[in-house]
């Protein structure tokens, strides 16, 4: 068994919101007791609705928000004790919106070369060679280096975003909804590119997405988040073929599949909407929307326990398969 590249141990990120004068200070538990690991070369899919804490977790892993509680270790060493630049060489991020995440006033060459220079690669010939090599890897032509972001289409811009994330040869790349801002006809190109690069460069990914089709296609393992907590995690096959948390089932049931018209069982659907993270329901956070809700769920927080080897679910009824 390979040593994990990234380990999260009971990580929580809390924010203080509001003021003492206007209604009092509240604690927003964006991420609350998250434990998982990512092994080298593995792709972990992170699934959940907006406001469930996925992006906050990504920022914590990038070292951009210190966790309130718990530990994040990268390559076996605590993130808090690592140098910022060293962390940046190990973990990088691809953002959702390729229109907003590239500097419109920098050429592609500058966007790719700046990180190299910042990290001590000063030899001009080497910088040029690595920029050219990276452009080729993401399927762009050498002459593209001297253009500005507005001269590219959305798909090409996302290729630039990927090149920027990979230029420092990181081991882990966090992809935050990498295709959801792209045209449907372009998405397959970018997904194929991400998978090719993963194999060529031995990258590990954390794939944050609400598109379960994409997550199933690319992930080795999947973690499902709801209101700051992981409610289920396991291999992609277990999650999609034998989901044990009602929320996971509701997510899968909610995806309209063009090839299975209305095959969804109505009983699996979730009712209502995600609760506010400021006032999460007591007990199991999902209970107000859950078809399996019982008295116990409103009081007792279910722990993330094993259903089978490598498959865990935080539900009092994890053994029920109906």
């Amino acid at each position: 068994m390979a040593e994990p590249l990234l380990e999260l141990d009971d990580v929580a990120v809390h924010f203080k919101v509001g003021s003492a004068l206007a209604g009092g200070v509240h604690t927003l538990k964006a991420v609350d007791g998250v434990t998982f690991d990512v092994k080298p070369g593995e792709c972990l899919g992170l699934v959940g609705e907006s406001g469930c804490g996925k992006s906050t977790l990504a920022l914590a892993i990038m070292g951009l928000i210190p966790p309130t509680h718990g530990h994040i270790a990268l390559d076996g060493r605590d993130l808090a004790k690592r140098q910022r630049l060293e962390t940046a060489r190990t973990v990088q991020m691809v953002f959702q919106d390729p229109y907003a995440s590239l500097n419109p006033r920098q050429t592609v060459r500058r966007t790719l070369a700046d990180p190299l220079r910042l990290h001590g690669v000063t030899d001009k010939a080497e910088v040029a060679a690595r920029v050219a090599d990276m452009l080729a890897r993401v399927g762009l032509r050498p002459e593209h280096a001297d253009r500005y972001p507005h001269e590219f289409s959305g798909g090409q811009r996302q290729r630039i975003g990927i090149a920027r994330a990979l230029i420092l040869k990181p081991k882990l790349v966090i992809c935050d909804e990498p295709v959801s801002a792209l045209d449907v006809s372009i998405r397959a190109q970018i997904i194929n590119l991400l998978l090719e690069l993963k194999d060529e460069l031995g990258l590990a990914y954390i794939m944050i997405s609400h598109d379960l089709g994409v997550v199933e296609h690319v992930s080795d393992r999947v973690a499902v988040m709801y209101l700051g907590r992981i409610v289920e995690q396991g291999g992609w096959q277990e999650i999609f073929e034998d989901p044990r948390h009602p929320y996971t089932r509701a997510l899968i049931a909610a995806i309209p599949d063009p090839f299975h018209r209305a095959a969804v069982s109505a009983g699996a659907k979730a009712k209502g909407e995600i609760a506010s993270a400021l006032a999460p329901p007591p007990g199991c956070h999902f209970h107000p929307r859950c078809p399996l809700r019982a008295e116990r769920c409103t009081i007792e927080v279910p722990t993330l326990d094993a259903v089978a080897a490598g498959h865990r679910a935080a539900c009092h009824f994890r053994e029920r398969t109906d």
Binding site: A188, I191, D211, L212, G213, F240, D257, P258
Partner: peptide, 10 residues
């Protein structure tokens, strides 16, 4: 054809 379809990988 370009859609990743649920269940296709299995």
């Amino acid at each position: 054809d370009s859609l990743p379809r649920l269940g296709e990988r299995a």
